[in-house]
Design a protein around this nucleic acid. Structure first.
Length: 201
DNA sequence: CGACCGATCGTCT
DNA sequence: GACGATCGGTCGA
């Protein structure tokens, strides 16, 4: 199990990177409390030409500034006032590509996740959906802008690669208002995995 | 299990 | 002043 190198994120094809993120392991380590989960669902946001992206038409504000950072930076923002959504920045500095991690399957630290979620027993909702996984892994906007080469939050590769046959592709969730972009097949997920959010599994 | 709906507040217009 | 890259509870089947 090794930390994914910066070169993994520093590529031009955000769709390809999103596809390859499936099966990788998102790890957080706060004061030696480790929680991790295997990525089973993510969505690509294709920069300035993607109407569903925060950086559509080169939009740049205090919130999305980190999208223009170098590849392998964490972009975390608040949605609906309560939910912290974790994204990975890709491509060269100045090109605002990002991938939203939407769901993971718990690997390590499940009892800690239960504490953070205020639950007694594990169920599939514990890391299903971007807001939920952030609570379980202890991710908040405090991590916005930090490097995924750090030791507190990173993505690891344990050489597991999902078979092509079990990788599903669909339009993204929650972007109905984005015109044509709403239909783009930019969501990737592991078919049949119970932690995958949304309707299409 | 699906459909619906209210919560909640930072961000941008 | 309106609107989210959402969630969890409730209701009905």
């Amino acid at each position: 199990m090794r930390k994914i190198p910066a070169s993994f994120y520093d590529r031009t094809d955000v769709l390809q990177i999103a596809r390859e993120l499936l099966g990788k392991i998102l790890v957080t380590n706060w004061n030696s409390v480790i929680t991790s989960g295997r990525i089973v669902e993510c969505e690509a946001y294709n920069g300035v030409i993607d109407k569903a992206s925060h950086a559509y038409k080169g939009r740049r504000t205090a919130r999305n500034d980190v999208m223009y950072e170098k590849a392998g930076t964490a972009y975390v923002y608040i949605c609906y006032g309560i939910h912290h959504l974790f994204n990975v920045v890709t491509n060269k500095k100045g090109i605002p590509h990002a991938i939203l991690i939407r769901a993971v399957e718990p690997v390590e630290g499940i009892s800690e996740m239960l504490k953070r979620r205020n639950k007694k027993k594990p169920d599939y909702s514990i890391t299903k959906g971007p807001g939920s996984l952030s609570v379980s892994l202890g991710i908040t906007v405090r991590q916005n802008g930090i490097s995924l080469q750090s030791d507190t939050i990173f993505i690891a590769d344990d050489a597991f690669i999902p078979d092509k046959k079990i990788v599903g592709v669909s339009p993204r969730i929650g972007v109905e208002g984005s015109g044509e972009a709403a239909g783009y097949p930019y969501r990737f997920f592991i078919k049949g995995n119970p932690y995958v959010s949304g309707r299409i599994k």
